[in-house]
């Protein structure tokens, strides 16, 4: 059951930070509902939207007793998730992020979670890291591969 909960959450969550934020917002909401504990900080707007988008059956799965336990389980499962670090040349906004995330989830694993890092040295495109191995698929690497050809063309231009 917890897996189903996790799957639902992960359906449109794409990055690790997003996931953690959303989980804390969800927890806040549920605790407020069950125990009337009011936190000082309201959840950010995007998250509240997502929370509203959650189906009601989903929320009904939680009740007073199992709230904490479910969250513990989810947290322990998150640790085991495969995380792919992606280096981008820009900081994506939510819309772009969801596009990239959906594409990735389609191509690979639905449960895939990204970790976005910023590296302007890749001129365009992205570099990926999985399980400690770093692969550069960006424009920089392409230029590196073809540098001789580029150089020759350049020289022709000079002459």
């Amino acid at each position: 059951m917890n897996e189903a909960i996790l799957n639902t959450i992960l359906e449109n969550t794409y990055t690790l930070s997003q996931l953690k934020r959303r989980l804390s917002a969800l927890k806040q909401l549920l605790l407020k509902e069950f125990f009337k504990s009011d936190s000082n900080q309201p959840a950010p707007a995007i998250d509240t939207e997502w929370l509203k988008s959650l189906p009601s059956e989903f929320l009904k799965q939680f009740n007073k007793d199992n709230v904490y336990k479910i969250f513990e389980d989810i947290e322990s499962q998150i640790i085991k998730l495969p995380i792919v670090t992606i280096y981008l040349t820009f900081e994506p906004d939510e819309a772009t992020l969801s596009q990239i995330g959906q594409r990735a989830k389609k191509t690979f694993n639905k449960l895939l979670i990204f970790d976005i890092k910023y590296d302007p040295r890749l001129i365009a495109g992205a570099a990926l890291v999985c399980k400690g191995v770093y692969r550069d698929y960006s424009l920089r690497s392409k230029i590196e591969e073809k540098r001789l050809i580029i150089l020759n063309n350049f020289k022709k231009f000079l002459k």
Binding site: P82, V84, L88, T89, F90, T96, Q99, I100, R103, A104, T107, F108, N109, L112, A124, G125, A126, A127, L128, C130, K131, V133, R135, Y137, S138, L139
Partner: peptide
């Protein structure tokens, strides 16, 4: 840019880089 990123993802898939 997005196209390039998609391309990167596809290439990763073909290289079987990501499980």
């Amino acid at each position: 840019n997005m196209d390039l990123i998609y391309e990167a993802l596809d290439r990763a898939k073909t290289d079987k880089f990501i499980a």
